[in-house]
Design a protein around this nucleic acid. Structure first.
Length: 584
RNA sequence: GGGAUCGUAGUUCAGUUGGUUAGAACGCCGGCCUGUCAAGCCGGAGGUCGAGGGUUCGAGUCCCUUCGGUCCCGCCA
């Protein structure tokens, strides 16, 4: 092998007449009889190399057989391209390399799909041959963005005195939020480790140990169902700080996020980040992770629908509406499609009216007399050419379904500029919510989150009305981080466990070590965890988390490349004393 | 757990109300070609229509089951 003197993205006009060696993959072959053009590619770029039968000393017939993705090592001379031959689309487009000798380092088998075009194959095939898909410009770029993001996070936090500490991957299963991935123990019959859903308890214990600023870029595991932005294993930037309140978290994390965006993609984020309470987010956007790149606010119109002759909304707890400017263009078919969207969120239907020459027309407009129409126009700011969509239902159904409609309309109206970044803190989350299935109190964040009160009696009296000292950081409709100020008093922690329905025995068994640790001088502390994959996804402009993970799993948690999960041998099962039951 | 949608050549797709020998483009193989950069031109090979079952004289097309992909609801602090 002729070791490379340059990469395939490096040579310029200034290198003319230099003798160079290049190593890389054949990107394309253009065969013209006695002259052959090949774009040689590596991670750094592409360079056109030329085999000319007059000059090339080796076997020209062998060169004719080269095909895409063969791996070559060549020696040649850099030559400036003629004026008409310059390719302005390539960074190396002003030069080409006349090949003198070539060694075929590796011949490729016929390809399952064309690598230059990610669209050329369906995703399952691309995932099976992920190593080939990773050769595409887009994924190479994404992996580089991800690398830069790690570095930007580490350098910022390290500079601010945060210590990176590793925590165990094999840990105790605790009844927190998601289902655990379990790992059987060979040495301890019938016992299991769990993979961490997050290093939550360890990082709190690190605070008790005095490491007052901790971070870790760490894999977390949750055995739930997956989506475009959720994988079974994912990466968090896990952070915890002692002697802090919410404001310390906000300012440090704003600084880190601004630094990452500036370093990685050169974007300036707002300073400071705006904030909204959970209640206001739900009321105004119908979401706890509002996309604030566009308005389309939810507006309360119950007072008007109550005065109309439209009876379906009279008994509804909450009637809200979205006005879409220019929405008269919406056809019956489009409205039907939007109705399907809101129905998946349990809305019974989608009411609408269009405004033309100051009057409401179509949809449910006949139930609204003239004066009422004027009032609606004034209150909502609706104008000629607009459409108003209305939903009446229980508050949560109305808000969630209109929130989803708002996102769908923004997508259709192209209001979501990928290069426009709108971070937003969501604050004042409820401490608990009622689980409708079990009729038990459950936490919104996690059970270590501090309530806004330190009064045990207040906790007892009306837990559902309590707020938590929890916060999420959202960006363009994605939750990119979430955290809280933690409980550092063993009494409050025990109280919260008992409100969640855990018996003292269960608490002792599952969380005893944490509660005990809290008794030995626990500093007030709090923290946050960033969904690193989602953050990188936004930095790359993708809307698919698989695009920023080198070896992702499918939405059914399969790895199509290596075929995991898979069955194991009887011997392995025997060692673990595990027997596979028949399903059902 | 539920819903929607997709699966036809190596790949991306077309394939009408169920009806002759399942087509196109790219890729692959062979030939021609000294300035291309999505090179071009000529020729060729290539199909378990995801799998299994059913209805029918006849199924890529209709029905059932099943496997897999994607998106969503529930779920995921």
């Amino acid at each position: 092998m002729l070791k490379r003197t340059h990469t395939c993205g490096e040579l310029r006009k200034e290198n003319t007449n230099e003798s160079v060696n290049l190593n890389g993959w054949v990107n394309t072959v253009r065969l013209h009889g006695q002259v052959i053009f090949i774009d040689l590619r590596d991670r750094y770029g592409k360079t056109q190399i030329i085999f000319n039968s007059d000059d090339y000393s080796g076997d020209f017939e062998a060169v004719k057989k080269l095909s895409m993705e063969d791996v070559l090592s060549i020696k040649g001379t850099v030559q400036a391209r003629g004026e008409n031959a310059v390719n302005p689309n390539m960074s190396t487009g002003e030069i080409e390399v006349i090949v003198e000798t070539m060694e075929l380092l590796s011949e490729t088998a016929p390809l399952p799909f064309v690598i230059t075009d990610r669209e050329s194959a369906l995703e399952d095939l691309r995932l099976k041959y992920r190593y080939l898909e990773l050769r595409t410009d887009e994924l190479q770029h994404n992996i580089i963005i991800r690398h830069k993001s790690y570095q930007a996070v580490r350098s910022y936090l390290s500079e601010k005195n945060f210590l990176e500490v590793e925590t165990p991957i094999l840990m105790k299963s605790t009844p927190e939020g998601a289902r655990d991935f379990l790992v059987p123990s060979r040495l301890h019959h019938g016992k299991f480790y769990a993979l961490p859903q997050s290093p939550q308890i360890y990082k709190q214990i690190l605070m008790i140990s005095g490491f007052d600023r901790y971070f870790q870029i760490v894999k977390c595991f949750r055995d739930e169902d997956f989506r475009a932005d959720r994988q079974p294993e994912f990466t968090q930037i896990d952070i915890e700080m002692s002697f802090v309140d919410e404001e310390d978290i906000y300012s440090n994390m704003e600084g880190m996020t601004q630094h990452v965006f500036k370093e990685v993609i050169g974007t300036d984020l707002p300073d400071p980040f705006p904030r909204i309470t959970y209640d206001e987010a739900m009321s105004k956007y119908g979401s706890d992770k509002p996309d604030t790149r566009y308005t389309l606010y939810l507006q309360d119109v119950k007072q008007f629908t109550d005065m109309s002759d439209f009876n379906a909304f009279k008994s509804a707890e909450c009637v809200k509406a979205i006005v879409v400017p220019g929405g008269v263009k919406y056809s019956r078919k489009m409205i039907d499609e939007l109705t399907d969207v809101v129905k998946t969120f349990k809305a019974k239907g989608l009411a609408w009216m269009k405004m033309d020459a100051g009057h409401l027309t179509g949809g449910i407009s006949k139930f609204f007399e003239d004066n009422l129409q004027k009032e609606i126009k004034n209150a909502t700011g609706m104008d000629d050419g607009d459409i108003i969509f209305l939903i009446g239902d229980e508050r949560s159904v109305t808000e969630k379904s209109l929130g989803a409609l708002r996102v769908e309309i923004a997508k259709r109206e192209d209001l979501t500029d990928k290069n426009n970044f709108k971070p937003l803190w969501v604050t004042d989350f409820p401490m608990f919510e009622m689980d409708e299935e079990t009729d038990k109190l459950t936490f919104l964040h996690h059970p270590f989150t501090s309530p806004t009160t330190q009064d045990v009696n207040e906790l007892d009296s009306d837990p559902e009305s309590l707020k938590a000292r929890a916060y999420d950081l959202t960006l363009n409709g994605y939750e990119i981080a979430g955290g809280s100020i933690r409980i550092h008093s063993p009494e409050i922690q025990n109280k919260v466990f008992s409100l969640l329905g855990l018996s003292p025995e269960e608490v002792k068994e599952k969380f005893g070590f944490l509660v005990e640790a809290l008794t030995y001088g626990a500093p007030p502390h709090g923290g946050i965890a960033f969904g690193f994959d989602r953050l990188v996804m936004l930095l790359t402009g993708s809307n698919n988390i698989r695009d920023v993970i080198a070896f992702p799993k499918t939405t059914s948690a399969l790895s199509l490349m290596d075929g995991s999960p898979d069955s194991v041998s009887e011997k392995q099962l025997d060692e673990l004393n595990i027997q596979i039951k028949k399903k059902k």
